[in-house]
């Protein structure tokens, strides 16, 4: 049986005239834009609440010392293998590449100092932040997201336990405390990796490598790197907790929260790194 012929008269009546369609399209565009803006403002507001209470709760009882130590073990100790591996190879590769570049000017002696400054000021804190975001931040977002969709966070609320105090505070605090330690380890192992490659593979002069390293890397470089690490730890802790805490939509939502936590943390680390580097010459 053939389909009925369309009623051309009623079709013409149902379709608005062009100016009306233009106004409708403009209205939809503005509403969509306003809705998007509102959503963004709400998201920033909720993240601000998590950040504020994450900090304010540090001074409010109960202190959650045991939970904080557990989180330090998870974020810090369990991240050590990947930090050690990455830092050793980063120092080694950076030494190889800078040796090739400096060799063009006969300035191979600068390798040790250059690698030292780059690691302590930039590579150490930034790569450590990115690694922690990828390993621990994703796990935090997934854990809290799962707790949200399985009503475990509601259960805490129902038992008169503040979920921000119980779940967010220990994680943010632990991330802030362990990031400088991991960064210091990254810096040290990276320099050792650079030393091994520079001295034993590139056959650089040992005294020159060490003297340049000592002359060029001063305490301000190390302090600024550690300060960045504190900021990056705060970013990873707050973003991961926020993304997990406000997860919606079941298993798919948990996956999205996890991905989003890593992406937002990583971008925030790279952007804030620029501003800190700008502010601290």
């Amino acid at each position: 049986m053939s389909p009925p012929a369309p009623d051309s008269a009623s079709d013409t009546e149902a379709r608005p005239i062009l100016p009306v369609r233009v106004v409708e399209a403009a209205g939809r565009f503005v509403l969509g834009w306003v809705g998007g803006l509102r959503g963004a403002v709400e998201e920033v507001g909720r993240a601000g609440v998590v950040a504020f209470w994450g900090v304010a709760n540090v001074f409010l009882p109960p202190l959650r010392v045991r939970l904080t130590i557990q989180q330090m073990e998870f974020i810090g100790v369990q991240s050590l293998p990947i930090i050690l591996l990455t830092s050793a190879f980063t120092g080694a590769v950076f030494t190889l590449q800078s040796h090739r570049a400096f060799a063009m000017f006969g300035a191979q002696a600068m390798v040790g100092g250059t690698v030292g400054v780059a690691l302590t000021r930039e590579l150490g804190p930034t790569l450590t932040g990115l690694l922690v975001a990828g390993r621990a931040g994703s796990a935090i977002a997934a854990e809290l997201g799962t707790m949200r969709v399985t009503e475990q966070i509601d259960a805490l609320d129902a038992m008169a336990v503040d979920p921000l105090n119980y779940l967010v505070k220990p994680r943010v605090l632990a991330a802030v405390l362990v990031m400088p330690m991991l960064t210091a380890i990254f810096d040290f192992v990276g320099i050792v990796g650079s030393y091994v490659i520079g001295i034993y593979l590139m056959h650089l002069s040992r005294p020159e490598f060490l003297v340049r390293l000592g002359d060029w890397v001063d305490w301000d470089d190390i302090y600024s790197g550690l300060l960045k690490a504190v900021v990056f730890g705060f970013i990873v802790g707050v973003v991961s907790c926020y993304k997990g805490f406000y997860t919606t939509g079941g298993a798919r939502g948990v996956g999205q929260a996890t991905t989003s936590a890593v992406v937002v943390s990583s971008v925030a680390i790279l952007v804030s790194n620029f501003f800190i580097a700008w502010a601290i010459p």
């Binding site: 799962t146 707790m147 009503e151 475990q152 509601d154 259960a155 609320d157 129902a158 008169a160």
Partner: peptide
């Protein structure tokens, strides 16, 4: 006020 309540959730909501 919540301290006066106990609740059994639909999926139990035990901590994993």
């Amino acid at each position: 006020v919540r301290l006066r309540f106990g609740i059994v959730f639909q999926q139990a909501a035990l901590f994993d």
